[in-house]
Design a protein around this nucleic acid. Structure first.
Lengths: 331, 331
DNA sequence: CTCCACTCTGTGCACGTTCACAGACATTCT
DNA sequence: AGAATGTCTGTGAACGTGCACAGAGTGGAG
């Protein structure tokens, strides 16, 4: 049994293809009588428009591709992605756009993404966690509109994005430590080719000024193990620290383990602050004082930017959203 | 500048459309001379096949849809999804299939999915976390092949799936408790309309037999809060328990909090066992003894089943993969 | 009454591909 | 030599839709 086409609907409703097509595409100039007849015919036949045929003539595909540039480990652990995926699906569905997922972790995958996009298979591109210097950005060039969730370093003025105010968040945590009377405040950063890595450190340094010496700063790669390693390193270098701001909750969980191993009490000996307010933050002991990012709003604004570009908007400004200090027991 | 079509490639290579098409689709009967000429023409023109035009005639779409039936909270927390998404994208890409994501959390979303699938917009359906009695399964009916990651309760013989051996995992943990000499072993289950909820309890009961009384069993909904609540409930009902098997790591983190609040030491007073070996398991204090599911293999086998069905395989058997006990400090 | 503007409808064409078919040519077998 | 087989190629039709266009009907203004 073949799928019904627009011809079948037209025949059943006693009108022509053109009229059905006009109704489907929200044009005016469809008489009330024709309208009800067509609507009945559609529900009777169970007609669903054939996207392939449509996109052949409209040159649009009805889909948006989300490109994950992260090497796969991170995909496991970041609630950011789940939120973004969910919000993206929901908001795109309202416009009858579907979400296609692609990976761009290595050169072969990037090649595939470029072929897909340049081949005209997506009306928009949603970049996620694209690192500084990622060749993908150049390669996509002047294809369909692209946005990013989080800044793309080096392309801030080319690719619109929505992001949390990373510097603000870092300042909030650091100022909280200062207000509590902590004297030796250290930091564990993320990778320095990501906005979260760079800007959270900047916020930290803005508050502490010259007190933010390199002896008080260690670098991690977002993983729990790297947080533990960095904390051990800091304790070795500067045993008298009494607070540490860790650029992610997961790394903070690692830091807690290192502090416990070193016999330091949290928060009495050393205060620990995380970043993200992820599910890890409440499963550690003690639960983490952390910075909440407005993940849902970030996702919404990102999609909104993309939809605006698809609708033909010109250059758009980035959207920066405020963070919030969430106080629990670790600081 | 228009995108090059197969005509342009044919012209540039000095052959006809048909020959180019044959090469593209891996047919035999293309002479070596034609082959090199076409390949050169393709790379010179930057030609990419137009999927819309292709699927119009082949009646295939080149995409697979992944349907997430979970109300959105869970999406936040389960590493299972990230693994599945990543593996799915990778394996499908090898076959030049792309992954489309859809939600089916409420009736409107389910309606959209059904229209999409019945409208012929997917060559295969990948069900995720479909609950017992989900109307979606019926509604999809005799469309393209569907598989599930994890059993779909009530449709085990209709929808092929790959899953961990839930009962085995539950037995492994329970037997470990028994071997340690624990006498009063309780359990916190997941929701009883999911395979993980039902079968982990079954495995538990298989080992304990009549000792698994209802006083020793409490139910959660996979969330950390529900784990905490269930643990408190158990401690109230049966204060002398000395071990508890919790059906997920996240709920186990909640249980740890409840035990701490009640002043019970872990593992000395009460041993705690989780399930999943998720990232939470190593961020709790103490780290969780838990059951590892072979997430990657599960995902791979699921996709393999789907690809086999797309290739025209008949009825397929479910794939059940063994779990593994991971011993840490909580038991 | 004529003209114009507006609403509504049907028709032919194009989008870019695959597939079935027919035919050309080379090779092998009887 | 003729037939049969196998390799390679080009051509026309079809897939289902949107769009431009032409044209029919209606009502109001001049």
């Amino acid at each position: 049994m073949k799928r019904p086409t627009i011809h079948d609907v037209a025949a059943a409703a006693g009108v022509s293809r053109g009229t059905v097509s006009r109704l489907l595409n929200g044009d005016r100039y469809v008489s009330p009588a024709a309208r009800v007849a067509i609507e009945r015919a559609i529900s009777e036949t169970g007609y669903v428009v054939n996207r392939a045929a449509r996109s052949l003539v409209t040159q649009r595909t009805g889909s948006v591709v989300m490109v994950l540039s992260e090497p796969y480990e991170k995909l496991f652990e970041d609630p950011n992605y789940s939120t973004l995926i969910r919000v993206a699906i929901k908001m795109l569905a309202e416009r009858d756009l579907s979400l296609v997922m692609m990976l761009a972790g290595d050169a072969a995958e990037r090649e595939r993404v470029v072929r897909f996009v340049r081949g005209g298979h997506a009306d928009g591109v949603l970049l996620v966690s694209t690192h500084a210097g990622d060749p993908l950005v150049e390669a996509l060039g002047s294809g369909p509109p692209a946005v990013s969730c989080g800044a793309v370093i080096g392309h801030e003025n080319v690719i619109p994005y929505a992001a949390a105010d990373e510097r603000l968040g870092a300042r909030q945590m650091t100022e909280y430590f200062v207000a509590q009377g902590r004297r030796r405040i250290a930091m564990i950063t993320g990778p320095m080719d990501t906005p979260g890595g760079i800007q959270r450190l900047e916020g930290f340094a803005e508050v502490l000024g010259r007190k933010a010496t390199s002896k008080l700063i260690a670098h991690g790669d977002w993983t729990q193990a790297s947080g533990e390693r960095a904390m051990a390193e800091l304790l070795e270098r500067t045993p008298d620290i009494d607070a540490v701001f860790v650029a992610s909750d997961l790394m903070a969980a690692g830091a807690l383990a290192a502090l416990r191993a070193a016999g330091r009490g949290v928060p009495d000996d050393v205060a620990v602050g995380g970043f993200d307010d992820s599910s890890v933050a409440v499963s550690t002991h003690p639960p983490l004082t952390t910075i909440r990012q407005p993940l849902t709003e970030m996702a919404q604004e990102t999609i909104r930017l993309l939809l605006a570009l698809i609708d033909g908007a010109g250059q758009l400004e980035p959207v920066i959203l405020p963070t919030e200090l969430v106080i629990r027991e670790s600081a």
